[in-house]
Design a protein around this nucleic acid. Structure first.
Lengths: 223, 223
DNA sequence: TAGCACCCCCGTACTTTGTACGGTACGGTC
DNA sequence: GACCGTACCGTACAAAGTACGGGGGTGCTA
């Protein structure tokens, strides 16, 4: 733990830039969580002293805005050439994947009211695709609000889950089981025993069910 | 601004308690935002010195867990006596209302993996209600994941909106319009001009559309 | 009624974090 | 060679979480 370990190879001559700062910020947040992202840890990752960062961003808020926009930049941008339902599926799945790679982004979205260029581009393309797919202006607004709510909310629940895989589940079970043991939550216990705790269950698999249901509904509304 | 102004009336003899701490924490977060909720501001609101708080909670994390659970406690608990669709509607609307009253809760949910008693009770009752309404165990899991994703995601978008009412919209418009003016986001502009910027538009109204669509889909799946 | 235990609260101080302020080194231009 | 802008750094301070060690009031026991 003596020398800082930059996430990017020590190609030392690269002179730092807003983009390098944001890329490092994403990497640090991925590795240490949002609370681990401090100006000092970020500078350490960049192989630079803390105050140097401030020559490329105004303050930490701007960094937070920037990394949220970076996450939007990782989502696939829909094309208005494709069939709307396939495009929406692709869009939703890649959005969920991006939010899974960067779970801290969800918590940040509430509080950032400053959409960046990638965010705007993403939304613009989505609207264009639906309009090209025959959706009215009003129905486009409905559809995007609905699908995005579902995607963000699903990601929120997914990252807020008490367990990651089967490995940590036991520990959590210990914490909660004392409460369950009192018999106060019979339905929760039933659902856990008969479904969630069964081998092979993965909350992530619920995503497809809801997405299809929603797209079915939108297809019907489009008529 | 000399004396601290407690949010609760200065009924001074009440001796502080975990519940009073959490209630004040909710009030402070509502008033100042989550970043305004510090041990010192909380103590100030309680009319007490900072370290006194630590006799009732272990640390700030526990406060954050506690206020999230408090928000869940404000949501109406579904009854397994009622008709499932009406109960789900009531549940979803009251959840959204609670998250609107306490926008900071959404950002907190990601990061809190420690559900409190109100949260567990809420989920338990919801499961029981759906089971009583004829949903299979598997479909119950699907339905809750779907509806909750929608509700949380909608709330997330709602609080992340760049404007509150028509009042601040102008300011935001100024910030973004320079980007819009470049013509990079034609579809966004169309949607804004023809729909969102029209008098009477309220993003909150989108909620009902998606909820009904989802419940229609679940009703069909239940057969 | 004197003594005592205990619960609740507080004063002080240390650590971590964001960031203001003023350098300093280096490359280019007149 | 004098000047200057760009990029980075050293120092320092304020705000926030919280460890540690009291102290004062209330009620119990003798």
């Amino acid at each position: 733990m003596s020398a800082p370990v930059p996430s990017s190879p020590p190609s030392d001559r690269v002179p730092l830039s807003r983009d390098r700062v944001l890329a490092s910020a994403v990497a640090v947040a991925d590795a240490q969580g949002l609370s681990g992202l401090t100006i000092r840890s970020l500078a350490g990752d960049l192989g630079v002293k803390p105050m140097s960062v401030y020559h490329h961003v105004a303050n930490k808020e701007e960094i937070l805005d920037g990394i949220v926009d970076a996450v939007f930049g990782e989502m696939e941008v829909p094309s208005d050439q494709g069939e709307w339902r396939a495009e929406m599926t692709r869009r939703a799945r890649s959005a969920r994947a991006a939010l899974r790679r960067h779970p801290w982004a969800i918590g940040l979205m509430e509080s950032r009211t400053n959409p960046g260029p990638a965010t705007l581009r993403h939304h613009d393309a989505s609207i264009g695709m639906l309009r090209a797919g025959g959706f009215s202006v009003v129905l486009t607004a409905h559809a995007l609000a609905l699908v995005d709510s579902y995607v963000y909310g699903f990601a929120l629940q997914e990252t807020g889950l008490p367990f990651e895989g089967a490995d940590t589940a036991a520990e959590v079970a210990g914490t909660m089981l004392e409460q369950f043991a009192t018999g106060q939550y019979p339905h929760l216990v039933e659902l856990a025993e008969q479904h969630v705790m069964r081998p092979g269950y993965d909350f992530g698999d619920e995503f497809g069910f809801g997405l299809e249901l929603i797209l079915d509904g939108l297809a019907a509304a489009r008529q």
